[in-house]
Design a protein around this nucleic acid. Structure first.
Length: 317
DNA sequence: ATTTAGACCTGTCAGC
DNA sequence: TGCTGACAGGTCTAAA
């Protein structure tokens, strides 16, 4: 679910809130969320560690811990991080409707009201309050706060690595699109020889790290390129524009706090605003902002793609 | 060597 | 109201 902008936004919030804090203890309620190492080692190694820094690599959120370790968190489709202030109770009791699912799904947490209203108030005013948070992992911090990993679909993974294993933990990840080292020439080189559609190539993390379905569609719209164009058929001027579009679209999304169309929430439980600034993603049936033609939706590689058939023509060359 | 369908998972929403 | 099918910010693996 979260793509680069959502992960970046969360990383920034975490950086200004939990660096310097210590993990007192971790609780894991869905074992498969821990991808590496084994659960026992994870629980032992994580406890007592101070949080030194928070970074992002592609769609991975990276939490550096003392002792040259780091947590890598990949939220996949529906993962979210939520920081609970001290005093918030985490209710482990089952809600009625979950009783039947207990044996297969395990306990699901939801955040209860704080005894005294605490900032951030958004948690208290959130419509999500009282609804099930599907907590899969809970990190108790030494200062009483709790960092919850919420993930209804359970696709997300959290791993604990030694700092000298970074190459292994992030193997196969391409360049960071928002680093100054990412140039149009580099993108051109990555596209050369790729026969599949540009849409699918943009989703390949070894080409550019962090682009997902939303921002691939948005970047292609920016550059007026049809998503089905063969990647190796793009002309230099188009690649230049696509490069510009990738940077513009990701940067704008971070400024808007990420794209929420259903589940994405920031560290305080707030929705992002970028869905209000999206041009084509899930806008099928609505008029293109540039020419008025209705935006269309097609399926490419089992993922939906949205584009304007007038602005993004499938030219033959 | 690539492409593609299936797996992993559960919630929500439209339509009958 | 209830059921069914489509669809959802991702990525890995097995089969074609």
């Amino acid at each position: 679910m979260p793509e680069l902008p959502e992960v970046e936004y969360t990383a920034r919030q975490l950086r200004s809130s939990i660096v310097g804090a210590a993990i007192y203890k971790a609780h894991v309620f869905w074992e498969r969320t821990i991808g590496y190492p084994d659960l026992d080692t994870f629980l032992i190694e994580v406890s007592g560690r101070c949080i030194e820094a928070v970074r992002r690599r592609g769609k991975y959120l990276v939490v550096d811990l003392e002792g040259d370790l780091f947590l890598s968190i990949h939220r996949r489709m529906t993962g979210n991080l939520l920081l609970l202030p001290p005093g918030w109770e985490v209710d482990t009791s089952l809600r009625e409707r979950d009783a039947a699912a207990w044996s297969t799904r395990g306990p699901s947490f939801f955040a209860a009201s704080p005894s005294t209203p605490t900032s951030p108030t958004s948690l208290a005013s959130s419509t999500d309050l009282g609804k099930n948070w599907y907590c899969r992992v809970c990190f108790d911090l030494a200062d009483g706060r709790r960092l919850l990993y919420i993930d209804p679909r359970k696709f997300g993974r959290i791993e604990l690595w030694s700092r000298d294993c970074e190459a292994v933990a992030f193997k196969g990840l391409g360049p960071e699109p928002l680093s100054t080292a990412f140039r149009a020439e580099q993108l051109a080189q990555a596209l050369a020889g790729r026969k599949s559609s540009i849409k699918q190539v943009l989703l390949a993390q070894e080409v550019v790290a962090g682009i997902g379905n939303i921002y691939a569609d948005e970047a292609l719209y920016y550059a007026s390129i049809h998503p089905l164009r063969r990647a190796d058929s793009l002309r230099p001027a188009e690649i230049e524009l696509l490069h510009e579009g990738i940077v513009a679209v990701l940067t704008r999304a971070i400024e808007h706090g990420g794209t929420t169309f259903s589940g994405y929430r920031d560290l305080w439980g707030e929705a992002g605003d970028n869905f209000n600034h999206v041009r084509v993603y899930q806008q099928d049936g609505k008029p293109c902002l540039r020419c008025g033609t209705l935006v269309e939706r097609i399926v490419i590689g089992q993922r939906s793609a949205h584009f304007c058939p007038s602005c993004q023509k499938l030219t033959l060359e």
